[in-house]
Simulated assay, not measured.
Amino acid sequence: MLIDYHTHHARCGHAQGSLEEYVKRGIEIGLQELGLSDHMPLLHVNPAEYLPEMAMPMEELPSYFEECLALKEKYKDRIDIRIGLEGDYIEGHEEKIRRIVEGYPWDYVIGSVHFLGEWDITDFRQTAGWENKDIHSVYEQYYDAVKKAAATGMYDYIGHIDVIKRFGYKPEQDVTPLENDALDAVKKAGLAIELNASGLRTPVAEMFPSRRMLEYAYHIGIPVTVGSDAHQPERLGQYLEEARTLLKEIGYTQLATFRQRRRFCVDF
């Protein structure tokens, strides 16, 4: 079973390629299921006053969904398209997020923490935000947000759960308790996580999450899906063979897939 549930396209401002180019690429590489999952519009900052190219404008959200739906129908005999959204969790803005999540018939919604306040910890242009910070305290704040995201009931799985490590900033203290607490919260909420292979092309050079976190997730029975987090059509499916190999080494035999906000597990 070849799937890729985490993709982005030109509407978000920092990716390339049209939705149809991703669909055609998915067919070319033999995907059975392709998840289209672009970023939710920014809700907590004024896009005109923030950094450019962060997310799709709010006025583009309806056309994004409509285009996904049209492509799903157009290519239904060649690839199974699932319509998704990467829905940022931003503490204090839960109701605004919920209106978007509940306003469309998504197949799935990814719960991802990118922002701590107005600081996007995943943006290479904002790494100066780490300066003069207590790194362990930032990790505590991040994983607290992940736990709160899981508890909202708005999401189907948690995306790149340890993306906080992306640029290689790691505290001297052991963060295993923070990571395990976050996974325990995911388990309690009945959610899945993703193995996001894109970490292999970031400074940390490790998938999200780490093998240790995946082993703990497997131990407590958390389902997992996979995603390339592709921002260019040619990167669709990138490193997913390595991801599937790692999952099999740990003991996973099934992947989580999603349709109409319901989770299904398939052998791979």
Rank of each mutant, 00 (worst) to 15 (best):
P177Q: 13
K165E: 11
W130P: 00
V163Q: 02
V175D: 07
E73C: 05
I100R: 12
P203W: 09
K188A: 14
S198E: 10
D88M: 11
I79F: 12
D184A: 13
D134N: 15
P105M: 12
K147A: 12
A145E: 10
W106E: 05
G84Q: 05
A145V: 02
R82P: 03
Y108V: 06
I158L: 15
P177S: 10
I110V: 14
S112A: 15
I161A: 08
S112G: 15
W106V: 10
D144P: 00
K170S: 11
T176V: 14
A70D: 00
L85K: 03
K165S: 04
I164G: 07
V109S: 10
K147I: 01
D77R: 12
I79D: 12
W130K: 07
V163T: 07
G84S: 06
A189V: 12
V113P: 07
A128G: 13
E94R: 05
F115M: 04
L116N: 08
K96S: 14
A189S: 15
T127F: 11
G103E: 10
V186Q: 08
G92F: 02
D123V: 10
I110F: 08
A150S: 14
D162W: 03
E140D: 11
V138N: 09
D120M: 00
K96C: 04
L191C: 13
A149R: 08
F167E: 09
K133H: 11
I79N: 06
K74G: 13
R201W: 07
D184N: 10
K76I: 05
V101S: 08
R78V: 06
Y104E: 13
L191W: 13
H160T: 09
I193A: 14
Y169T: 00
R166T: 13
D174W: 09
G190W: 02
A185M: 03
D123S: 14
I158D: 03
K165R: 15
K133S: 09
A150C: 07
G199I: 02
R166A: 03
I158P: 00
D144W: 01
E194N: 15
V175L: 01
G111S: 01
A192K: 03
A70W: 10
D156P: 10
F208K: 05
T152Q: 00
D184W: 02
D156L: 08
I164E: 03
D181H: 13
V113E: 08
D88H: 14
V138P: 11
G92V: 01
I164M: 05
A185Q: 04
L85N: 00
D107Y: 06
Y143N: 09
V204N: 10
I79E: 00
I121T: 06
L178M: 15
R201C: 06
G117Q: 04
K74Y: 13
D181M: 13
A185R: 04
A182M: 05
V204I: 15
L116F: 07
H160Q: 04
V163Y: 03
R82W: 01
E140G: 09
K187Y: 11
W130V: 07
E86G: 11
D80G: 03
R98K: 13
W130N: 01
K148Q: 10
